[in-house]
């Protein structure tokens, strides 16, 4: 596996992504919405509920931060759908496969092209979120809540694992669909369990503290390993040329 060859593929796909306004918009809008919108909501809750306890504020802050993991599902799905189904619709996979580049290098390049902008977007958004939350809650809590281990686990462990899983699912889905929208919609199914987790956190059924996030990251990491094997089987040049619909 030559990383330089994978990087050529990734760099090309990144340049294609830069031309897609919808993807660029999603990469900016979603983390911006989470990092600005939710702190404003926390501020509103604090202002409107003078007797609110520190525990309730923290549970809101942690639950809202979980949206960075949800962004880890949504953003790479749309990018990798363009990256792979886009090649499929332009019929550019065969010439790409005819170059001296291995299947693994092409796949890695495509994973990087979806993963890197997603993570940059999430990390930038999380930074803004932490700064704003600290500014808003410091007076009530009496200390700076961020940075803490929970957000570190969330954005450096859970979100990357979730992003990789979403890309893998998108690759698997891409082999069976003909257009980008279908790929995005089917890959988006992964979004639902995360929304359920978010709701569970809001109603205090599944607290999104460090331990639970680590547990979740571990389980999803195992799922991502299994999915990777499926992905490698699907992204095989003979399969692509003879069986992809």
């Amino acid at each position: 596996m030559r990383l330089s060859q994978a990087w050529i593929v990734a760099r090309h796909d990144l340049s294609m992504i830069r031309r897609r306004r919808t993807i660029l918009g999603a990469l900016i809008a979603m983390p911006a919405g989470v990092s600005i919108g939710f702190p404003l909501l926390v501020w509103y809750i604090i202002v409107k509920s003078p007797g609110i306890t520190d525990g309730v504020i923290i549970s809101f802050v942690d639950a809202f931060a979980f949206w960075f993991a949800i962004a880890g599902v949504m953003l790479p799905s749309s990018i990798s759908a363009y990256s792979i189904v886009g090649e499929k619709t332009e019929k550019s996979l065969e010439p790409l496969l005819a170059t001296p580049t291995t299947d693994g290098e092409i796949l890695l390049g495509k994973v990087l092209a979806a993963f890197l902008p997603t993570m940059v977007s999430i990390w930038a958004g999380a930074t803004v979120y932490m700064v704003l939350i600290d500014a808003i809650t410091r007076g009530t809590l009496g200390y700076l809540y961020y940075p803490n281990l929970t957000i570190v686990v969330l954005v450096f462990a859970l979100a990357p694992i979730v992003a990789v899983l979403a890309i893998e699912i998108s690759v698997a889905v891409s082999s069976r669909v003909q257009d980008v929208r279908s790929a995005q919609q089917i890959s988006g199914v992964l979004f639902l369990p995360f929304i359920l987790l978010y709701v569970a956190a809001e109603i205090q059924v599944f607290p999104l503290d460090t331990d639970h996030l680590l547990l979740l990251a571990g389980i999803l990491g195992l799922v991502a390993l299994v999915t990777f094997r499926i992905c490698r089987r699907v992204f095989d040049r003979e399969t692509i040329l003879t069986r992809w619909k």
Partner: peptide, 13 residues
């Protein structure tokens, strides 16, 4: 060098 049946160019490039 291969010219496949479908040209397969990146249209926006």
């Amino acid at each position: 060098g291969i010219l496949p049946e479908n040209v397969g160019l990146y249209e926006s490039s």
